[in-house]
């Protein structure tokens, strides 16, 4: 029986990944340890437990931070996976063009791209959750459900960022995306402090970010804080962002590589 075309692309990604998997695996472990130790324990020691309980709804700053950090990590991974390697394949090595000359069409290429990213996100968030358990920042019971908002935030980022990359002529746009899109989102979407602390004018902007929706859900799952919207609406927003992004990616790529 024929292998679905998207899975052939996933396999190709695996073959490429074999080359870098060790470094990548170490990073996935070390990053959460560093963040949770420095910010959660170090910085968190300045937040006394009563303050944590009243303003953050958590037993400690570490508990407040960890689920947000989990989701922010998948956002960063998703952004990387759908920017540099993709631009290289479109423009520099032109391997997408080579792929499209085979039975793998645009839909297979895009499908494989997103399945691969979903698998990477799952791996990265699993490692993160294991680290959370080690820090006592999550309970074993919550560990699995935390993966849901983590992977969905990653995909909600990967969709639009892939579409953005598919339309880029140079790396300049991607540098700007990190500087003016991803970094502010990382800092101001509720990961490190509740967005209620933001100036009133800026708060609505945070509502638009996929990261904030994911943080809301992850925090509810980890420490039981109330979400602003029903969970299904937060997750639905993430799914819609992914779907629109994936659809646009296909359109832009086809126009670009199959003129």
């Amino acid at each position: 029986m024929a292998t679905p075309v998207a899975l052939r692309v996933v396999e190709a990604n695996f073959i490429s990944y074999r080359r870098v998997w060790k470094g990548s695996a170490v990073t996935s472990f070390v990053n959460p340890i560093l963040y949770l130790a420095a910010m959660g324990l170090g910085l968190g020691s300045l937040v006394d437990d009563t303050a944590a309980a009243t303003t953050l709804g958590a037993d400690s700053y570490l508990e407040f931070l960890a689920p947000g950090m989990l989701v922010a990590t998948t956002m960063i991974t998703a952004t990387f996976e759908s920017s540099w390697p993709m631009l290289a394949a479109i423009k520099w090595t032109k391997t997408y063009e080579a792929t499209l000359a085979t039975p793998v069409g645009v839909s297979g290429l895009i499908g494989g791209h997103f399945i691969w990213i979903a698998m990477r996100l799952l791996a990265v968030s699993t490692v993160f959750v294991v680290v959370m358990l080690a820090f006592g920042a999550a309970s074993a019971g919550d560990a699995i459900v935390l993966l849901i908002p983590a992977v969905l935030v990653g995909l909600a980022i990967a969709g639009p960022v892939s579409a953005f990359t598919a339309g880029r002529e140079s790396e300049q746009g991607i540098v700007l995306l990190f500087r003016f899109g991803i970094t502010p989102m990382f800092l101001f979407s509720g990961t490190f402090f509740p967005i209620s602390q933001l100036p009133d004018l800026i708060q609505p902007l945070a509502y638009l970010t996929p990261l904030w929706h994911g943080v809301e859900v992850a925090r509810r799952m980890a420490i039981g804080t109330a979400t602003t919207l029903p969970i299904w609406q937060h997750l639905g927003y993430l799914i819609v962002l992914f779907a629109v992004g994936a659809w646009l990616t296909g359109r832009y790529l086809a126009r670009r590589i199959l003129p």
Partner: peptide, 29 residues
């Protein structure tokens, strides 16, 4: 059923020679 040699090489430069062939072969299942 086609073999294509494009005007520009479009090889994956990070991969080994052999891996380039392996990946391409898998695209054809």
């Amino acid at each position: 059923r086609l073999g294509v040699v494009p005007q520009e090489d479009s090889l994956d430069l990070e991969l080994t020679v052999e891996e380039n062939l392996l990946i391409y072969g898998r695209y054809f299942d």
